[in-house]
């Protein structure tokens, strides 16, 4: 088996998932200039809610599996959109004109609240995804690839293309871009910035929900703390690509996924056996710090100084 092409595939899958979550960070940042710390928790809720629906329907109804899966997906998306909407309404909107530190602190508080609420509801156990997807393996270029991996990559690509078209072509997309450019001007043109902001949060949350389900189905059990690391890494991806930049988030996600999967493979060799794969998270953080220090505008972001 070829390690290189195997890591490439693993990296692409991981990267697609990061990219989907990173989009939520980047869209909100683009419009509000705010890091929505709670976004990782939304991903976690996506996984949790879909699990709850799956288990309930599998146990109590005789519906076909595909239909149950579709219902769980839709349920999780709907729930997360509502969650994203309410978070913005409750925690961020009242502070839109407050000093910078304030929304940042509520964002952290919100993330803790969500995490612990999930713990109260679903407990501290690891919850695994039910066995409803028959896994098939293929061999490509000396690497193993499963139908699930293919599905994740394809779905992620479809979603990103969809989002791209939405933002470039639709009325909503134009309004979003206008609001990101200048909320005042957008308001003058008859766009209601509050509605656009809500829509942005909901759009990001929907993508996060799907990513949460992917994580659960592909990587393993869901846990109330899973959103923290996922969120942090997706944020790293968003920064890597250039925060506020949609294409950047997609690119950043993929690059981070690849860095991580190759890094984890070679980290032990690189450090002469000193660091094992336990240090994988250190890797993501180090990438984040290096980008922020040396190129805070990311790969695709524009370098903009603060306006004085």
């Amino acid at each position: 088996m070829d390690i290189f092409s195997q890591q490439l595939i693993n990296g692409l899958v991981l990267g697609s998932i990061y990219a989907l979550i990173a989009l939520g960070y980047t869209m909100v940042y683009g419009i509000l200039g705010l890091i929505n710390f709670a976004h990782g928790e939304i991903t976690m809720f996506g996984a949790m809610v879909s699990l709850a629906i799956l288990h309930a329907l599998l146990l109590h109804t005789g519906l076909p599996t595909a239909m149950i899966f579709a219902l769980a997906l839709l349920g999780a998306i709907g729930f997360c959109m509502a969650l994203g909407f309410s978070i913005e309404r409750v925690a961020y909107r009242p502070l839109r004109n407050a000093p910078r530190l304030a929304p940042l602190i509520t964002a952290i508080g919100m993330s803790i609240v969500l995490q612990n609420t999930a713990m109260l509801i679903w407990g501290k156990k690891f919850l695994s995804f039910p066995d409803i997807i028959p896994i098939q393996r293929y061999q490509i270029a000396g690497a193993n690839i499963t139908n699930l991996q293919v599905a994740i990559i394809v779905l992620a690509i479809v979603l990103m293309l969809g989002l791209w078209t939405l933002i470039q072509r639709s009325r909503l997309g134009r309004a979003m871009r206008a609001t990101a450019q200048s909320p005042e001007l957008a308001a003058l043109m008859g766009i209601n910035p509050n509605r656009i902001i809500s829509a942005t949060f909901m759009l990001g949350a929907a993508l996060a929900a799907i990513a949460g389900i992917m994580v659960n189905a592909y990587y393993g059990p869901a846990h109330y703390t899973m959103g923290f690391m996922l969120g942090l890494k997706a944020f790293t991806a968003a920064v890597l690509g250039g925060i506020g930049n949609i294409a950047g988030a997609m690119l950043g996600g993929l690059v981070l996924g690849l860095i991580e999967s190759f890094g984890a493979g070679y980290i032990s060799q690189l450090s002469g056996g000193f660091m094992g794969s336990n240090y994988q998270s250190v890797f993501a953080f180090t990438v984040l710090i290096i980008i922020l220090v040396f190129r805070p505008s990311g790969l695709l972001g524009e370098r903009v100084g603060e306006r004085v």
Binding site: V90, A91, I105, G109, I112, V113
Partner: peptide
């Protein structure tokens, strides 16, 4: 288990 939940709420509410 309520401890952190309450701390988080307190952060949000006090900021608002």
């Amino acid at each position: 288990d309520l401890r952190l939940l309450i701390f988080g709420l307190a952060l949000v509410l006090s900021m608002i």
